[in-house]
Amino acid sequence: MTAGAPGAGWLLSVKHHTGYRYAGPVFSSYNEARVTPRSDPRQRVLDATVEVSPAASLYRYVDYFGTVVTAFDVHAAHSELTVTASCVVETAPASAVEAAEDGTGWAALADPDTVDELGEYLAPTQRTTAGDELLAAAAQVRAAATPDDGARLAAGWTHTRLDYVTGSTSVHTNAVEALAEGRGVCQDFAHVTIALLRSAGVPARYVSGYLHPTADAAIGETVTGESHAWVEWWAGGWRAYDPTNDSVPGPGHVMVARGRDYDDVTPLRGIYHGGDSQALGVSVEVTRLR
């Protein structure tokens, strides 16, 4: 097996399994999955499918944030619901991802038209409300020479401040709670960075997607990947950063959805009636095909 040619993008195959297990039979459930990547300048989606068990008819639409949503309802009694999303995506090479043009200065971010246009990414949400510690840190971000510098500072600050510990927080944790814990998962890293950026007046958004765990992945080898989250900020254009890994997203990152925070991009969300529900362990398999 050989690594791909330097400078070329990767071709990635991703299989994402998620779902719920129930204590008793569930008679009816309605769900929406946000697990399908879309093509954009940084990636080309060659194939994307969603399968649901028990079988259900799937309805697909594009939401306010441009995310592909797969909606379905199940009306047969069941004790387990699984969703499997598969896709094949061609990603851009790292150099292309990093080559963002020079960002604007702070003055441009304060322009009333920009503030109005991007207001949704400047206003705090419940998950990205800043506490005292974040407000103090935001002042440092604000003191950076450019918004881009400030944003990198913010991501670095988060990376230093939080320890990555699997299972240390829940899907409901917000930025302030994660900071108080001093640890979290990619979701918390993203929320803290976003809270910091917005407090400093930099429009910021949440990105969900998949990650191949190795930088020089072998071709054809299927490995365990991540259901991942990172951030984007706006400084004349949107640019991405992965605060969990303190790096610019590379060819191993597959973008699925963007929004104000996790609530806008939740991979699987729904309602049901019947026995208690427990999320199944999520698993992501990735294979670099080229």
């Binding site: 639409y61 306010y64 109005d116």
Partner: peptide
């Protein structure tokens, strides 16, 4: 109308978009 006026309204429902 400024976009902010609309997107900051309690009753602007993104779920109804489109």
């Amino acid at each position: 109308v400024p976009r902010q006026v609309v997107v900051s309204s309690q009753h602007f429902h993104r779920q109804a978009f489109g």
